[in-house]
Design a protein around this nucleic acid. Structure first.
Length: 283
DNA sequence: GGGATTGTTTAAAT
DNA sequence: GATTTAAACAATCC
């Protein structure tokens, strides 16, 4: 469930730790997490230097020397953990935080350090793409704008003439990049907008409040180290605390922190959706 | 063992 | 054709 704030924190951490390091070895425990030919992936990353690590949408992108990009999508339960040089590595994969039963990949760097890709659910994946391949990859190419770098004029335009429910569009990575179930529900609550409202029924003022709410929620989550209600941890294995500030997500049936009304749980765009019928009325 | 979990893709419907 | 919705899929936990 890492969404924009969690992926951003991971990418920033890895940028600090991995910049300038050279990939010396890669151990593959679960080949299916690699998209494309596995041996080619291994060959491509071998001896490459990490130039920089950043986030785009929910993707972690590690820029390597000679124009290659190591891309990760963490999906629900993916983790990217950094281990410094003095970490003991247990290749038997038993009861060890660095290499355990969740471990799918282990990168070994020079100077000695490790990057461990763990993923309980095995939905996460990685691929190695040239700059050109990355630009032409449909998922990457079609990503919508970054919510934190968006101006109010451009925001309303994203929804112009669209009848789909506002939450479905917030979750659509082609409309807006990086938003998932948590931050969609939380920002709609803060903006006082019912998640099932057709986008074309919203007024200019609604879009203004929605972008303010969205950016406020994302920034607060970033400040608090992300949401760790399940298994998210940053690149050092540390939990965030934004889950302690959820207003609606995962709180169906409990009372609204603002007005006391019982929060409702419905399905929108195939996903569990919680909202306050009083603070977010249908209009 | 069925249901819930989620982000994304694909197919079907409008 | 474009847009929208629903179903399918990945694997695991409870």
């Amino acid at each position: 469930m890492p969404e924009l704030p969690e992926v951003e924190i991971i990418a920033q951490g890895l940028n600090n730790f991995l910049q300038g390091l050279v990939i010396r070895d890669l151990t593959i425990y679960y080949p299916k997490c690699i998209q494309g030919p596995v041996q080619e992936y291994k060959k491509q990353v071998q001896s490459k230097e990490v130039l920089e690590v950043h986030r785009r949408g929910k993707l972690v992108i590690m820029r390597l020397s000679t124009g290659l990009n190591l891309v990760f999508h963490l999906k629900m339960t993916g983790k990217l953990l950094f281990f410094a040089q003095d970490t003991r590595v247990d290749h038997t994969r038993v009861n060890h935080t660095c290499v355990n039963h969740q471990t799918r990949l282990l990168f070994c760097f020079q100077p000695r350090a490790y990057l461990c890709f763990q993923d309980l659910r095995k939905f996460g994946y990685t691929c190695c793409l040239t700059d050109q391949e990355l630009q032409h990859w449909p998922f990457y190419r079609d990503l919508g704008p970054e919510p934190l770098q968006l101006h109010h004029d451009d925001f309303a335009a994203l929804f112009k003439g669209r009848r789909a429910r506002i939450k479905a569009l917030l979750l659509d990575q082609k409309v807006l990049a990086g938003i998932g179930n948590i931050y969609a529900d939380e920002s709609l609550f803060l903006a006082g907008i019912h998640p099932a409202t057709p986008a074309d029924q919203l007024k200019e003022n609604d879009f203004f409040r929605l972008l303010v709410a969205l950016q406020r929620v994302l920034r607060k989550a970033l400040d608090l180290g992300g949401s760790s209600f399940s298994d998210y941890v940053n690149s050092l294995g540390e939990r965030g605390s934004f889950q302690d500030h959820f207003q609606v997500y995962g709180r169906g049936g409990r009372s609204c922190k603002h007005c006391g009304t019982s929060l409702e749980r419905i399905r929108v765009a195939g996903r569990s959706t919680v909202f306050c019928p009083r603070c977010q009325p249908v209009r």
